[in-house]
C-alpha cells in the first residue's frame, strides 16, 4: 500500500484513468531566472477561479436587475451570499443583528467595504474544498501553502484595518486591554501582556491556516487510508477480501459525507474568524 498522505498532497501530474489519458505530466514554465513548476493544485485553482467567475458574474447580472433570482441554482448562491453577509460579516464587524430591512436598509455600514473580500475568501475556500470531493481532483486547501497564504492575507487585512482605525501606535497599544492597576504595577504587567497579546495575535492568525489545512488534509488522508484497505485486502481470501472491501466502501461513503460537511464548515469558520478579527481590529476591547 502506498503512502496515503501522497494522495492528499499536491503533485506535478494528474492521475486520471487510462481511458482519460492516464497520468498527465504538468509542465514547467521557464521564467529565465527560475523554472516555475505547474502542479495539480494550481490547475485546480484555475478551475476554481473559472467556476467562481462562471457562477457569480451571471448571478450579479440577474440580481442587478432588481428582480429576485429565479431557479434553485441561483437562489442557492444568493442564500449563501446573504447568509455570509447577514449572519457572519455584519454581526462580526458592525456588531449588528441580521435584520437588514427597516431602519438599517440603505444605511452605509463599516462591513460593506469588506464584503467583496470576505465573499471571495469564502467561496474560494469552499470551491477549493469541494474540488477535493470530485474524482481525480484534489483540495488545494489541503496544502499548507494555500491556507498559509490565505491566513497571511487575512492577517495583513486585519492589521491594516486596525492601523487605519486607530493609528500605527494606537492599534498595537490597544491590543493590551484597559485595566485599572495600582500605580507602578501597570509598568510591569502591561509590557508582559503586550508581548502575550502580540504572540496570541500571531498564533490566532496562524491557526487559521493550520485548522483549514489540517481538516482538509486529514479528511483526504483518512479517505485514502480506507480505500487503501481494498488494495491491501486483494491478497486475502475471497470472503475476507469482500468484507474488507464492503466495509471500506461504506466507510468511504460515510466519510465523504462528513468531508462534504467539513468543506462547508471550514470555509465558514475561516471567514467567520477573519470577520471577527476585522471587527476586533475596528472595535478594540
Amino acid at each position: 500500500m502506498s503512502d496515503p498522505a501522497s494522495h492528499a498532497q499536491d503533485a506535478t501530474y494528474f492521475h486520471l484513468p487510462e481511458f482519460l489519458g492516464g497520468e498527465i505530466e504538468l509542465p514547467k514554465i521557464p521564467l529565465g531566472f527560475y523554472d516555475f513548476q505547474i502542479t495539480k493544485y494550481m490547475v485546480i485553482e484555475i478551475f476554481v477561479a473559472v467556476c467562481l467567475v462562471a457562477v457569480f458574474v451571471p448571478l450579479a447580472k440577474r440580481i442587478v436587475t432588481g428582480q429576485p433570482p429565479r431557479g434553485r441554482f441561483w437562489n442557492l448562491f444568493e442564500v449563501f451570499l446573504l447568509y455570509i453577509r447577514d449572519q457572519v460579516v455584519r454581526p462580526c464587524i458592525d456588531g449588528t443583528g441580521s435584520h437588514t430591512t427597516g431602519s438599517h436598509a440603505g444605511h452605509k455600514r463599516e462591513s460593506d467595504k469588506y464584503l467583496p473580500f470576505l465573499w471571495t475568501l469564502f467561496f474560494f475556500i469552499l470551491f477549493c474544498n469541494l474540488f477535493g470531493m470530485l474524482p481525480w481532483m484534489g483540495s488545494p486547501t489541503g496544502s499548507i501553502a494555500v491556507t498559509g497564504l490565505l491566513a497571511v492575507i487575512a492577517f495583513l487585512t486585519v492589521t491594516i484595518t486596525g492601523i487605519k482605525a486607530h493609528g500605527g501606535v494606537g492599534y498595537w497599544l490597544g491590543l493590551v486591554p484597559k485595566m485599572d492597576l495600582p500605580f507602578g504595577l501597570g509598568y510591569i504587567l502591561k509590557p508582559m501582556l503586550f508581548v502575550i497579546e502580540i504572540v496570541a495575535y500571531l498564533i490566532k492568525h496562524g491557526v487559521l491556516a493550520i485548522r483549514l489545512w489540517a481538516n482538509m488534509f486529514a479528511g483526504h488522508v483518512v479517505l485514502a487510508v480506507f480505500l487503501g484497505f481494498i488494495g491491501a485486502a486483494m491478497t486475502l481470501p475471497l470472503l475476507l477480501c469482500g468484507t474488507v472491501t464492503g466495509l471500506s466502501l461504506f466507510m468511504s461513503v460515510a466519510l465523504s459525507f462528513l468531508e462534504l460537511f467539513v468543506a462547508f464548515l471550514q470555509a465558514y469558520i475561516f471567514v467567520f474568524l477573519t470577520s471577527l478579527f476585522i471587527g476586533g481590529a475596528i472595535h478594540q476591547h
Partner: peptide, 26 residues
C-alpha cells in the same frame, strides 16, 4: 510556487469578482 500561484489566482479572482460580481451584487 503554489503559494505564489495561489496569490495570483486569488488576486485575479478577487479583482474580477469585486468588479463584476460581488461589488454590483452588494
Amino acid at each position: 510556487d503554489l503559494a505564489v500561484w495561489s496569490l495570483v489566482i486569488f488576486l485575479i479572482v478577487f479583482g474580477i469578482l469585486a468588479k463584476f460580481a460581488f461589488g454590483p451584487i452588494a
